[in-house]
């Protein structure tokens, strides 16, 4: 229980340990703790941000869906309209075509009738001339009476 130089040695040892702890222990641990605190705070903030972003995204998705639904309806209506138009057009086209075909057929019939009539007329003239020749024997000269005969043929 003697007070001696041990006291001073202990004082120095104490000072050294305090210095060492301050320099090589305390700062490191405190930095790590501080860093972790920051990390946790950041993480929590990020999580909150994530939740908010998800909510936002959900809302946006809903809006998009609504928009798409509206657009689809619009497109459907447009398509319906266009289809109606096409049907109408086709109907009118078909009607026109039918009319045209009818006209063409009629024209052809007329033409054929005329042709037939001409042919028949020629035949009749020939027959009439033949008959007249038979009747009059040589008295009718084709060359002389051709003009009058042509007139008759035209009247047929």
């Amino acid at each position: 229980m003697n007070i001696n130089v041990t006291l001073i040695a202990q004082l120095i040892a104490f000072a050294f340990f305090v210095w060492f702890t301050k320099k090589f222990v305390w700062t490191f641990i405190m930095n790590a703790l501080e860093e972790r605190k920051q990390k946790i705070a950041d993480g929590l903030a990020a999580a909150e941000r994530g939740v908010r972003e998800q909510e936002l995204a959900e809302q946006r998705a809903k809006e998009r869906l609504e928009e798409a639904r509206g657009k689809a309806g619009e497109i459907l209506a447009q398509a319906q309209k266009r289809a109606d138009e096409i049907v109408d057009e086709a109907k009118s086209d078909a009607r026109g075509e039918g009319q045209r075909l009818l006209h063409a057929a009629r024209a052809e019939i007329d033409q054929e009738m005329t042709q037939t009539r001409e042919q028949l007329r020629g035949e009749v003239v020939k027959l009439a001339l033949l008959g007249a020749e038979q009747v009059l024997q040589r008295e009718v000269d084709v060359n002389v009476h051709n003009e009058s005969l042509q007139k008759v043929a035209a009247q047929l």
Binding site: M1, I3, T6, L7, A9, Q10, L11, F14
Partner: peptide, 11 residues
């Protein structure tokens, strides 16, 4: 040992 305790307390 009072030397040790006094060493610290004097510090």
């Amino acid at each position: 040992d009072p030397n040790a305790t006094f060493g610290m307390s004097i510090g």
